[in-house]
Amino acid sequence: MTLQLPAKPSLQEPKPATPSPRRTKRRGGVSRFEHWLYLAPALIVLIALMGYPLFQLVNVSLYDYRQDQVSGNAPLDFIGLENYRTLMADPEFWQVLANTVIFASACVILTLVTGSALAVLATRLRPWVRNTLFAVSLGAWATPAVTGSAVWLFLFDPTQGLINKMLAGIGLSQFVDHSWTYEKWSAFGLVASEVVWCSFPFVMVTVYAGIQAIPTEVIEAARLDGASMPRIFSNIMLPMLRPIVIIVTIQSIIWNFKIFSQIYIMTSGGGIAGQNMVLNVYGYQQAFAASLYGLGSALGVIMTVLLLVITLVYLRLLKRSGEVL
């Protein structure tokens, strides 16, 4: 197993009541910059690998930057926020944004619910059953998105797919030649199932590790007091798992808003007449397929800002509810 956990990691870092004497002694003129020195390697790497591309993304989004401009065949014009204005005025963009929010939210919720439920279940299973469950779901997790999507598409193929054959086999004749990607929400549902299938294992393993770290005495005490399993989960486990749940939620939000491969492959680039378009596929279509690099960058910026805002709001809400971050 790749996950190595200390025997009993404490989740809440004990706060030192008073600063240690060594640190106070060191507060001198030169050492005020000392922490920057330690941070420097990480900062340099971060700025080079993230700061610069991000800067270029914002920069490009302010230009009329198409293939003709890139290869030097047309003058490069600074157009300010024109790309953003074009997007805001485009009803298609709003439709795509709505699709993305609904689709991603559904994926996040389903992933978290499935992952947590199976994690709790795993604590109640015999070791060999649990290990089998883990091995199988890690297989799903390890499957590359492209392969997973292709296999799912095979299974749900209208004429040759196993699913339709099985459904027809048990007498549901409406599934003969039934196309799962024909209706908008049926197609989104199919893709969402694939997404949940390949991302719940991460949530499950992480939450399971968290549960294992909860001192058994606490749960035993609750059980002695007559608490039911759901009660133990919501009142004992969940509060103690908060830090872990926060991490997996933020990860899931970011991951699911950025879904690309699954939609691109399973709905062949955005569905019938573009009905299954999500932001990232839309951005790809604009930037790379249509060579509208400026417009595509503007979409990228909007995506980044959107994710930052969602994450910050989420952290803020947690802070207000009294969580130590």
Binding site: L43, N59, V60, Y63, S71, G72, N73
Partner: peptide, 25 residues
């Protein structure tokens, strides 16, 4: 603070246009 540093760096560079190449015959 890191964001501030990044913003400063970005501001210092805003005069640069995105790169273009030259396909002259």
């Amino acid at each position: 603070r890191m964001l501030a540093v990044a913003t400063l760096a970005a501001l210092a560079l805003t005069s640069c246009a995105p790169p273009t190449s030259n396909n002259a015959a």
